[in-house]
């Protein structure tokens, strides 16, 4: 912040612009714990009934805890796959003499550019054929492979910044190629690993289209699908309930953001400082 111009008019302006947004958030929270008379904006009673989904299973829906567990499993396993494949594939593309390296990199890029929706019918058919339709593992594999191009590119970029001499020094010190990667190089790209991990987790947590199409069953339902089903159900439409589930759904994301803000930023910073 320079002293050349006063900051308060700026802050005021930004404040005014953000008021509607802030209000929306405030009402989102307020509505989940209160009731208000129809047509009124001011709540007239405090209630816990909108959060009843936590202790009772809604008719025709899976238990919220099943859905939460599924979402968690989906996001975590996707992240683990993305991390392990990206961290090794990125290294190979950055350092080893891979045949067709340029072709690989370009191909990975093209894959990343493909909108998921265009692939979904083909993926649906393949999963159907493999008997993995309506299974978590099927949709996890699909999500992970769609996340991989980004992960591989990010990791390759980070590996490229690790000095070549560090590896040579490791080899000279008697370490095998694998030990060098594991003990010397991987720690240098740790910021990228953690950032990529958080990104993948969040992407998995918020993924909607894939589970909706590929794993819609109650047993394997994730929160995003659960939430969408609520609003799609015209018979028992309950806006406050929908909002409460929504808040429940984003809470972990917000917590994660608060905890890992710095690390998330490092993916744009690059490099080995940390």
């Amino acid at each position: 912040m320079t002293g050349n111009y006063k900051t308060w008019p700026m802050i005021l302006l930004l404040g005014i612009i953000t008021v509607p947004l802030v209000l929306m958030y405030v009402y989102l929270f307020v509505d989940t714990v209160t009731n208000s008379a129809p047509g009124s904006l001011v709540p007239n009673e405090i209630t816990g009934e909108h959060w009843r989904f936590l202790w009772q299973t809604l008719p025709g829906r899976p238990s919220i805890w099943t859905a939460t567990f599924n979402t968690f499993l989906f996001a975590t396993v996707t992240t683990l796959i993305v991390l392990s494949v990206s961290s090794t594939a990125g290294y190979a593309l950055s350092r080893l003499n891979v045949p067709f390296r340029a072709f690989f990199l370009a191909g990975v890029m093209v894959l990343h550019a493909f909108p998921t929706v265009t692939l979904i019918i083909a993926i649906f058919l393949i999963l159907q054929f493999l008997g993995m339709y309506n299974t978590l593992i099927g949709v996890i594999l699909v999500k992970a492979s769609l996340e991989l191009p980004f992960g591989i590119w990010i990791m390759k970029g980070f590996y490229d910044t690790v000095p070549w001499e560090i590896e040579m020094a490791g080899i000279q010190d008697g370490a095998s190629r694998f030990t060098v990667w594991h003990k010397l190089v991987l720690p240098q790209v740790m910021p990228a690993i953690s950032a990529l991990g958080i990104f993948s987790f969040l992407a998995g947590w918020s993924e909607f289209i894939l589970p909706l199409v590929l794993a819609p069953d109650n047993k394997v339902q994730v929160l995003s699908v659960y939430l969408a089903a609520l609003i799609a159900d015209d018979n028992n439409f309950d806006m406050a309930l929908f909002k409460s589930v929504g808040v429940f759904y984003v809470l972990p994301v917000i917590v994660l953001f608060l905890f890992f803000q710095k690390r998330l930023m490092s993916i744009y910073g690059g490099g080995t400082k940390g």
Binding site: P163, E165, I166, M168, A169, G170, I171, Q172, D173, G174, A175, S176, L184, P187, Q188, M190, T272
Partner: peptide
């Protein structure tokens, strides 16, 4: 390389940034 028993000092030293000095020296 691993079996030649050659010590190398690189131009930019190539120390391992995430290890302490003692760990660096003791790595081999």
């Amino acid at each position: 390389s691993q079996q030649r028993n050659v010590g190398v000092v690189f131009q930019n030293y190539a120390l391992y940034p995430h290890l302490s000095i003692a760990e660096n020296i003791g790595f081999p």
